[in-house]
Design a binder for these strands. Structure first.
Length: 462
RNA sequence: GGCGGCGUAGCCAAGUGGUAAGGCAGAGGUCUGCAAAACCUCUAUGCAUCGGUUCAAAUCCGAUCGCCGCCUCCA
């Protein structure tokens, strides 16, 4: 049974999709005004892990991830760049797709752009105006929080307790209550706007997610995710908007990913610890090590992203890939002293149990690594049978369907490397260790590690 | 001020009542021409501190200390 901690109830709950066998999920996507940073990717990869595990569990899945391509920041920065909003956001949208592909994330079914759904948003706003949940003030339109009694349920915030800080009202527009939020912002000089039935202007941030999620997933759907910072006000506002229109529960399970810090400090541009994927790749970091590291810590746990951790993740990953290779390279035995089948079965059970427990990825990895040790021990002692090897391959294949951290080894059989290995083989046969070591060292300088195994010499890149 | 989270070895981290998973790093050993990989052994009588409940607590309760988040359209 899959269980999730539901932000809405603060409880671990059994997961029962609204329609049996089918999951409809909305994951808050990027605001495309710059390259996404490592913290953003933690959330996106958490969503990818969730996506993969739901599918692995046999559920049919429709995932929608929005692209926010109009808001204060995209407008501000496109202006600064001297580009149209569309051209500007297109650049970062493409960068986003390219980055998540590098990190091995599967594609969602639908990636709706906010600017392609202005009509849907206008329709919602009109309904909110008609029902008295929204009001117009100086040509902008606001949501009246007082009109929605359960406002604050998700975040546990009582609107009356909110500090009326000066900064909470950054808009110069007038509102009935400072806590009310903008659904529609009237057109301003020099800013993009849409000519609509509710006047010229642009949407507020929250309404896009209500409009697009309901359009593609229906008025009630199963899962909605995002970073913890979205709980309030973004997701709270989405609930208020959507339920006021539909009159039924908006989302059944809310899942929120905790933030990360970098080298023990909150990530910020001024501290210089603000990493994009490109920064890390330029530093020679393996994207799969980043993926592994980000997935290895439970998603609700604050994680500390460090250089040290990245190196550790790369080593852990290498242990897994080396293990798989030794399974593939080994000569099977007919019979061995210990039957591995129950061990493999137990590892699979523990892996799935952990993942079903609110995506306990650390526990799941623990199960995999224990199997690795047990099988390596068997390999050392006896060897494995063909049947056992097939069971291990099958488990690892399932593991990788969920984690997606093992990439097939590059099959670039570099002719020069093979030739040098062949030459070294001859040298070793002649017991010409000097020449053999020269070749090893030469290749090592090129990042090629030679390993002399029972079945001959093999190489890997570091 | 309001709401919430966290504190487990050098580092990362699982474990929410039954006697401390796992990974990385480190030390010693086995194997190997050397090396790598792998394996074996070692590395927390203890889970921030102090009390309490219990036959039994890292796990439940209370207090204290420390760190952090949200309440600002930052994942």
């Amino acid at each position: 049974m899959i269980k999730f901690l539901n932000t809405l109830t603060h409880r671990i709950e059994d997961f029962h999709p609204i329609t049996q066998g089918e999951v409809r999920m909305y994951t808050c996507g990027p605001t495309v005004y710059s390259y996404a940073h490592i913290g953003n990717f933690r959330t996106f990869l958490f969503e990818d892990l969730l996506r993969r595990f739901l599918k692995f569990s046999g559920l049919r899945l429709t995932q929608v991830m929005n692209i926010t391509d109009v808001d204060d920041k995209t407008i501000r920065d496109s202006k600064a760049a001297g580009q149209s909003l569309r051209d500007f956001t297109e650049k970062y949208t493409e960068a986003f797709f390219s980055d998540i592909a590098t990190l091995g994330a599967e594609r969602a079914e639908i990636y709706p752009r906010a600017t392609d759904h202005i009509d849907e948003m206008v329709t919602l706003i009109k309904k909110l105006l008609e029902s008295g949940h929204a009001y117009e003030k100086d040509s902008s339109i606001y949501y009246r929080i007082k009109s929605f009694p359960s406002y604050g349920r998700l975040s546990g915030i009582n609107p009356d307790d909110l500090q009326d800080g000066i900064s909470s009202d950054v808009d110069e527009y007038e509102k009935e209550s400072p806590k009310d939020f903008a659904l529609w912002k009237t057109a301003k000089e020099g800013e993009p706007f849409w000519e609509t039935e509710i006047g010229p202007g642009r949407p507020g941030w929250h309404i896009e997610c209500s409009a697009m999620s309901m359009k593609y997933l229906g008025e009630s759907f199963d899962i909605h995710t995002g970073g913890v910072d979205n709980i309030f006000p973004h997701h709270e506002n989405e609930i208020a908007q959507s339920e006021a229109v539909a009159g039924k529960p908006f989302v059944k399970y809310w899942l929120h990913c905790q933030h990360l810090i970098v080298e023990g400090e909150k990530m910020s541009k001024s501290k210089g610890n603000f990493f994009t994927l490109r920064d890390l790749l330029a530093d020679g970091v393996d994207p799969m090590a980043i993926r592994y590291l980000l997935l290895s810590v439970h998603y609700r746990q604050m994680m500390n992203f460090t250089r040290n951790g990245l190196e550790g993740a790369a080593s852990s990953l290498r242990r897994l890939t080396d293990f798989l290779r030794s399974i593939r390279d080994t000569t099977f035995v007919e019979k061995n002293t210990g039957d591995l089948s129950p061990v493999i079965k137990e590892a699979r059970r523990r892996f799935i149990d952990a993942m079903e427990s609110d995506l306990n990825s650390s526990g799941a990895l623990g199960a995999i690594f224990e199997l690795v040790r047990d099988v390596n021990t068997a390999l050392q002692r006896d060897g494995v049978t063909r049947v056992e090897a097939a069971q291990i391959e099958s488990l690892f294949s399932d593991f990788n369907r969920v984690f997606g951290v093992l990439v097939p080894p590059k099959t670039v059989d570099d002719q020069d490397i093979l030739q040098l290995i062949e030459e070294r083989k001859g040298a070793r046969a002649r017991r010409d260790w000097k020449r053999a070591d020269e070749i090893r060292e030469k290749l090592q300088r090129l990042g090629i590690i030679l390993e002399d195994a029972a079945k001959g010499t093999r190489f890997k890149r570091v």
